[in-house]
């Protein structure tokens, strides 16, 4: 009755078991995620669909190739830019999993998207090469990484808020987005933000979505998950009725999944995305001057068309006004 395990035997069995388990786990994971489907090929996307990316990569590369390079004297006069030029690469805090803004192509290892484009264009402006060194950030680590200067800047659909402005400087805004509502494609009783009352609504835990729902749909039951795939799965599995977050995020969900749709008009305050910078350096003025120039010469609109414009079928909007 009293049995003593022999450690060695137990260990080999454990190895075999965990192997089997890994396969099982992978199977379950595969079963609950959607079969990856290529996005519908859009009119202007020529090379875009090749790797499953929504972005028009040919146009994207063309935008980078045309990006301006700053006068050496201009870079020399700015300590922040000078350090980047000496290093030869810009250290960006960001992500590589956001379809339209910053997505790594597993085949080539290249990161492309609207955010990635802004970063690579700025790198080219300073160093002459569109080279960036991407560090993964999460909503919890962004301010800290800037404060301890682990990265030169953060471009990661980073909303400008007064609380964050106390900790970091924001160049821009370089993009503006409102919030939207995503539901299952079979849902018919949610057509606007007013219909969210009494419904279970998902949003991302560390996002501005929570405060937004409190204001625009105070009667909704807010359910948070920590990232976009989980919020999306919650809608697809009927755990929640709707998912509210920034439209730019929902657009890439809809581009990749046929069983969900966007309803109603975008609502809420427009959410301005800024370029996060270490507070109190000369980086702010440098980046703002560059942003104004690249918006004026059409680079901004071309980048928008190659990335966000592949899903939003309209002419490029006017870039948001840059705060001094």
């Amino acid at each position: 009755m009293d049995r003593i395990e022999i450690a060695g035997r137990s260990l080999t069995r454990r190895g075999v078991l965990s192997l089997g388990l890994g396969t099982l786990g992978a199977g379950v994971m595969a079963a609950c995620s959607n079969t990856p489907s290529l996005p519908p090929s859009s009119g202007s996307a020529s090379a875009g669909g090749a790797s499953g990316s929504v972005i028009d990569l040919a146009a994207y590369d063309a935008v980078l190739a045309k990006g301006a390079v700053a006068d050496a004297s201009l870079v020399e006069a700015n300590s922040w830019a000078k350090a980047i030029k000496a290093r030869g690469v810009i250290n960006r805090g960001g992500t590589d999993t956001s379809s339209l803004f910053s997505l790594r192509d597993p085949a080539t290892g290249k990161v492309a998207g609207f955010d990635a484009g802004i970063s690579q264009l700025l790198a080219k402006y300073i160093t002459g090469q569109p080279k960036e060194n991407l560090s993964q950030v999460t909503v919890d680590t962004r301010e800290t990484l800037l404060q301890n200067q682990s990265v030169d800047l953060i471009i990661a659909t980073y909303s400008i808020t007064p609380a964050r402005q106390q900790k970091v400087d924001f160049a821009g805004p370089y993009y503006e987005s409102k919030s939207a509502i995503l539901v299952k494609s079979t849902t018919t009783n949610i057509n606007s933000v007013d219909d969210l009352a009494g419904k279970n609504v998902a949003t991302q835990a560390a996002s501005t979505g929570v405060a937004l729902l409190q204001k625009y749909a105070p009667k909704a039951n807010v359910q948070t998950f920590d990232d976009n795939p989980k919020c999306l799965a919650a809608v697809q599995q009927g755990r929640v009725d709707a998912y509210v977050i920034d439209q730019s995020i929902l657009l890439s969900d809809v581009a990749k999944n046929k069983d969900v749709k966007l309803v109603g008009d975008p609502f809420g305050n427009s959410d301005p995305y800024g370029i996060g910078l270490h507070k109190g350096t000369d980086a702010l003025a440098f980046v703002n001057t560059w942003l104004k120039a690249m918006e004026a010469d059409g680079t901004w609109a071309a980048l928008w068309k190659a990335t966000v414009g592949q899903v939003v079928k309209s002419e490029p909007p006017t870039p948001p006004a840059i705060a001094s």
Binding site: A205, A206, V210, F225, D226, K230
Partner: peptide, 22 residues
């Protein structure tokens, strides 16, 4: 908190998101 149960860590994360307390 990963699956949306509002435990201490998730609450702190949400507070942090609103107030940027680092």
């Amino acid at each position: 908190g990963v699956i949306g149960v509002k435990d201490l860590t998730l609450q702190v994360s949400e507070i942090n998101n609103q107030a940027a307390l680092g």
